[in-house]
């Protein structure tokens, strides 16, 4: 049964707001709408639940940290640290997001309509059936996918600051697992020394079609048009890039 509740977050400190959310979930409410959110931290953090929370405004740092199952719709921009160590669930951000989104994320999906900051998907990893996914509609700052260990990272470059390139420097630096797809091409000098571009396979096309399809659905965009452009696929050279770096003392 569908149970809805609306909470006006205006001027409410994050502790009280998150308490209210958790209390509602305890009461089996499965759709929560938060209005006038501005800067409250840790929304959705550490929650194991299948409910949906929609957020109007600008949620604060560490949105959905350790989150385990919720679906979050953010109608606004998200700040730094979204999906930090997230385990499961879906986040759909109808704006931009800040730095270090998806840090050490192990599962779940994050879709960002706009652009993201520095160090996005840093140390994202996969384990057994858990394969995290981040799709960014706009552009990304430097250190995109820094020491990524697993999961799928897709960058579309559909929008964003005009003067900004689709991705900053040190893209995939230290990457040792997972796959990155970037729409269009990336200059060689932007790539970390541990990654290389490889040919797209049929499996890649299917995978892209699936996730870009979901992205397009979330934000009402044209999937085919997005897929019409070729993508660059980046994977790490090997799983242990620093194997030869050390010598026993």
């Amino acid at each position: 049964m569908n149970q809805n509740i609306t909470i006006d977050a205006k001027g409410i400190y994050y502790r009280q707001l998150n308490e209210a959310i958790k209390a509602s979930l305890q009461d089996k409410i499965n759709t929560i709408e938060l209005q006038n959110v501005n800067g409250q931290r840790y929304i959705g953090a550490g929650i194991t639940n299948d409910a949906t929370i929609s957020i109007q405004g600008t949620p604060g740092n560490d949105l959905a940290a350790y989150m385990d199952g919720l679906t979050l719709q953010v109608y606004g921009n998200a700040q730094d640290g979204v999906a930090n160590t997230m385990n499961k669930g879906t986040i759909i951000i109808h704006g931009d997001a800040g730095d270090a989104l998806g840090y050490a994320m192990r599962g779940g999906e994050v879709y960002v309509k706009g652009s993201v900051g520095y160090r996005v998907a840093i140390h994202m990893k996969e384990f057994q059936e858990k394969v995290p996914l981040v799709v960014v509609g706009g552009k990304a700052g430097s250190f995109f996918g820094e020491y990524m260990a697993g999961g799928i990272l897709i960058l579309l470059g559909l929008r964003g600051r005009e003067e900004q390139p689709i991705v900053g420097d040190y893209c995939g630096t230290g990457m040792h697992g997972g796959i990155m797809y970037i729409r269009g091409s990336v200059e060689e000098h932007k790539l970390g020394k541990e990654v290389k571009p490889v040919e797209m396979t049929e499996e890649d096309h299917q995978r892209l079609a699936l996730y870009v399809g979901r992205f397009a659905e979330h934000f009402g965009e044209d999937k085919e048009e997005i897929l019409a452009q070729p993508f660059t696929k980046l994977i790490p050279y090997n799983k242990r890039p620093y194997g030869n770096l050390y010598v026993g003392a």
Binding site: N38, G60, N61, D96
Partner: peptide, 21 residues
């Protein structure tokens, strides 16, 4: 330091961007 600190006093800016390093 945070976007929300701007939105608190200017909820609807003409332009908002995260500053590059």
């Amino acid at each position: 330091s945070e976007e929300s600190a701007i939105r608190e006093i200017c909820s609807n800016p003409d332009r908002l961007w995260s500053v590059a390093g």
